[in-house]
Amino acid sequence: MSVIYILITVSIVVAVVFLLAFIKAVKSGQYDDDYTPSVRMLFDDELKKSPSKIIEVEKQKPI
């Protein structure tokens, strides 16, 4: 039956880890701006590297 002590301790430790993670996130300023990151993550990295090529390809299509 003493397994209950272990289980509860583990569950509390997990919860504490999440609390600490939350505090760390707030401290690093992640909650100061809650809009920009939501847009930023939608930008495509590949497009950034060679957008000119992609545009060129697009241009060639109609011709």
Binding site: V16, F18, L19, F22, I23, V26, Y31, D32
Partner: peptide, 17 residues
């Protein structure tokens, strides 16, 4: 930036849950 309210809210939710 005063973020204490958010910290407090986090702690309060942790305890409450």
């Amino acid at each position: 930036v005063d973020r204490s309210l958010i910290y407090k809210l986090g702690v309060a939710f942790f305890c409450f849950g």
